[in-house]
């Protein structure tokens, strides 16, 4: 990816969830995303960071920008070295949870953002979400 890394955050404690979502919101605001998109991104980051803590114990969150003069472009990657997701198709379905949750996190996150990419294998999971908006 072109562009630059804005933030790289460790996700190791529950406090990091709060920090990651607030940093994501700040960066989105600084780039020029509106309140609705800031909130979508903050909520998405919160869901993904919680999954990292819950299923992989720890991981990291990287915020990346490759905006152009015509577009605001923000990408957030959540990465961990936990057990991985054996069945991604199932995990993306509403209501599917192996952790006694509502199974709302991943499918909900996908609906909040413009682009959602997930790759996972034993020992590695990476979710990248993107938000792209034309500048006004």
């Amino acid at each position: 990816m072109n562009g630059s890394i804005l933030q790289h955050l460790a996700v190791t404690t529950a406090t990091d969830i709060v920090r990651a979502r607030s940093v994501a919101r700040q960066e989105a605001a600084r780039i020029g995303f509106g309140l609705a998109d800031q909130t979508r991104l903050a909520t998405a980051v919160s869901e993904l960071a919680r999954n990292v803590l819950k299923y992989a114990t720890e991981g990291s969150c990287t915020i990346h920008e490759d905006s152009t003069p015509v577009e605001m472009r923000l990408h957030i990657t959540m990465e961990d070295h936990g057990p991985g997701i054996p069945d991604i198709t199932a995990a993306m379905k509403d209501g599917y949870s192996t952790g006694g949750g509502m199974g709302a996190g991943l499918p909900g996150t996908r609906r909040l953002v413009d682009k959602f990419e997930i790759e996972s294998s034993p020992g590695f999971t990476r979710v990248t979400i993107s938000m792209v908006r034309k500048r006004q």
């Binding site: 909130t39 979508r40 909520t43 509403d94 509502m102 499918p107 909900g108 996150t109 609906r111 909040l112």
Partner: peptide, 9 residues
């Protein structure tokens, strides 16, 4: 409210 409804259910 918007984000909650978009997330679903």
């Amino acid at each position: 409210a918007l984000a909650l409804v978009e997330m679903g259910r």
